[in-house]
Design a protein around this nucleic acid. Sequence first.
DNA 1: GCTCTCGTTTAACAAATATCAAACGCGCAA
DNA 2: TTGCGCGTTTGATATTTGTTAAACGAGAGC
Lengths: 225, 225
Amino acid sequence: MSPDDHHRIETIALLEGTPPHVGRLLAEAAEIRALAAGELAFVAGQRPQFLHLILSGRLALIGEGAGAETMVEAFGEGEALLTPAVVLDRLYLLSARAMIDSRLAAIPAESFRALLDREPALARAVVTQLARHWRVLIRQIKDLKLRAGAQRLASYLLAQDRDRSGRIYLLMERRLLARRLGMTPEHLSRAFAQLRPFGVAAVGRAVTISDESGLRRFCDYDAVT
Amino acid sequence: MSPDDHHRIETIALLEGTPPHVGRLLAEAAEIRALAAGELAFVAGQRPQFLHLILSGRLALIGEGAGAETMVEAFGEGEALLTPAVVLDRLYLLSARAMIDSRLAAIPAESFRALLDREPALARAVVTQLARHWRVLIRQIKDLKLRAGAQRLASYLLAQDRDRSGRIYLLMERRLLARRLGMTPEHLSRAFAQLRPFGVAAVGRAVTISDESGLRRFCDYDAVT
DNA sequence: GCTCTCGTTTAACAAATATCAAACGCGCAA
DNA sequence: TTGCGCGTTTGATATTTGTTAAACGAGAGC
């Protein structure tokens, strides 16, 4: 492992507020895994072997069932795949697939849980992290139950980061975005068409919104973070 | 507060594994709130004032948006409404409503967070609790995205506790169950009809299943806990 | 620069779900 | 008991979403 990898593991967002030796211990226990786009970091039904930190690239959490699959959430550089399966030592409910070529730090699950018991600051950091994800999941459930497809798309777009000129760059291809939003690619395409009256213009992965307040009203956007 | 209430707070499931003085401190900081059926413990958009423990009764977490409302999850006696809003000191994303007359222990959010920072065992217990809920939410998201209404109902029924004779007793009226499952009451009624070929018989709130393995196949039931 | 492939869009149609309306039935109070 | 109120069921219809198929278009490799 390169000193650079070591440093990236020690300074990952999850560990914010923990004493330096926690990061050092985790980095020492970690091994580096390179995944090509499409490869799986873990599979639903498996027993977790590692806690994965994303050093570079992007991974999607995938749910399978009833002969289909869906994307629950995607994570990028500097984030941890901190799934409850690892924390609780239960079987994975989701699989993780690399959306692009990625490099992961894999920390043995057993070491991580041992450290979790021993290091109060780590437990406290994990509480914060899990609580944040909880809110992301709650938003998704509210969206799925209360909003139609086009409204979910609008809501998703409004929550994305913009560049200086207000443009949004979609982090995934539309097929995947459709699965993230709980609809088919065909339906997503129609949803984009429905948003055109609000000045939503999509060119490739770049999206611009001209009537943002109209779009907010359309989807009853909830800006609470 | 009665000694009995005191004892119930100290022995709540959330605190399993924490030293006795943690429960004692929480119980001393708590005040008792009685809610009549239909009353709200907190409202989405509010800043959390308390962590609520359910001493008796049953509460539903309700999401509002786009002019409608939905039930995300329900909690009963001995459980805590351990929402991320309280942990992170953010605005509530959900409201909590008493489904029946209930008694709550309300612990000032500030005291709870302070104790969370000070007591490693509490942080560790909260990690476990949040992780468990995470899995409940993931199941719901997978259900909503991958399964049709009747399959979600089947899946829900198969996950419920049975009495000695194998009967299931529904914990809520059907109107609410419909919202929990992400459908209308009318659709739920038709979903029950769709399950009749598998020997699903509902009389009031009592439900029996005669062809359980058939039902499992029908909804592609995932028994992973 | 040119295909070739594969993701996206469009269209027609089918299935699932919601809506509206009315009938039903069960519990509760007079 | 009898009648009332409210939750549930049933039916007809509308809307939303998924499916199938085909056309389109942009990017990768030759």
